[in-house]
Design a protein around this nucleic acid. Sequence first.
DNA 1: CCAAAAGTGTTCATCGTACACCCATGT
DNA 2: ACATGGGTGTACGATGAACACTTTTGG
Lengths: 231, 231
Amino acid sequence: MMEYYQNQDKLLVAVDSIIFGFDEGQHELKLLILKRRFEPAKGGWSLMGGFVNKNESVDDAAKRIVFQLTGLQDVYMEQLFTFGDVTRDPGGRIVSVAYYSLIKINDYDRELVKEHGASWIPVSELPDLIFDHSVMVEKAIRKLRIRARTQPIGFELLPEKFTIPQLQGLYEAIYQVPFDKRNFRRKILSMGLLEKLDEKEKESSRKGAFYYRFNKRKYKELLKRGFNFEL
Amino acid sequence: MMEYYQNQDKLLVAVDSIIFGFDEGQHELKLLILKRRFEPAKGGWSLMGGFVNKNESVDDAAKRIVFQLTGLQDVYMEQLFTFGDVTRDPGGRIVSVAYYSLIKINDYDRELVKEHGASWIPVSELPDLIFDHSVMVEKAIRKLRIRARTQPIGFELLPEKFTIPQLQGLYEAIYQVPFDKRNFRRKILSMGLLEKLDEKEKESSRKGAFYYRFNKRKYKELLKRGFNFEL
DNA sequence: CCAAAAGTGTTCATCGTACACCCATGT
DNA sequence: ACATGGGTGTACGATGAACACTTTTGG
């Protein structure tokens, strides 16, 4: 590639990843954070991060970081914000592009997570994080809430087949408030985006709850016609 | 500053600025763009941009860019998105953080704008822009619309005193749809954020329209009590 | 037969939307 | 007196919120 733009400062560009997971059993939204193994701030709780390489897009770097920690590819991931204060990292001048991603909490590679010294922590019990990472997390939660109301991204945190009560539990975990189950069911079904299956989930109740499946095709169709999802 | 993090790639980091202005007379939202004076893509229509210096925050760089072109400080400005594809700029590997800002279209420094070869173009008549700048602009318009409905940022594009019809014209320019004036007036006044003044604006009609002023103090108070603005 | 979660309808208040006429004034 | 934009009220339908009982079935 030709190089124009001489004599300009070059900076370290990093990616930090806010990885949300949902724990069906415990009705909680969790975050994957790790103990830092190097200076500065060695031993502090931190988000998973890494530097963007010269021949790699920032998006790809973010995917790589999540893959390194969880072994997962094709995860829902969205750019959050870029943090560019001069002194945000005492180890050097680093511009950090933060991403958040959603993973099904039972899918990840436990070995990789253990190797990196990472743990799942409920978002309501997070310790202080290094540098500006706590700010990143707060911002991510706010954005996640808006997105979950506005687009059906919450579904990414559940298995392909899920029950209405599970879905409701997920939304309650994201918003930290209880919903009325009649209203919730009516609203979500009235959009016509869920297919009822014949099968029942029988773990969590005697009666059993019917499984549903999200109809992605139909969702895309409706989008084209100006539909907008709103919980 | 100690330098940890050796042997990592450093990249050029740029800021690109999407500068919106509102033309009261013409009921149009305009964008400030310029003809590029250097390679690559010399002569193409471009956003105002520049590189982030080592000892300058990314936010400060964005403010600097807007100041260089318009002579304005303390402008409403918000980070839009970071564009990080490897080949987005054929002149080199550049990560660009895009910002958008709103200015009162009669405030800017005409000399500076002329020096830079910049022009105000209605958003509905934009030419093709270089690189990924058109994508940036589309994204900015989408975000501006959401923000304007959700936060009273539109007010930044009007003088301190404005009339209800002016405000409505602004929103119509942002959304490119007409609103019912009775409903608009009712809704905006029902929030209790506008103070009616005794003075009338007499340019645009025989009868004259009362001036109003946005009450920032009251807005912040309401925000604390969980109020949320929604047009 | 009982505990535990799934599932189901109705009422009411609120809000958004559609809609048409009078007012004030400068020329 | 008339043209121009400013200003006002009401009726109707849609939507969101509150609320309690029946069903199923494993133990």
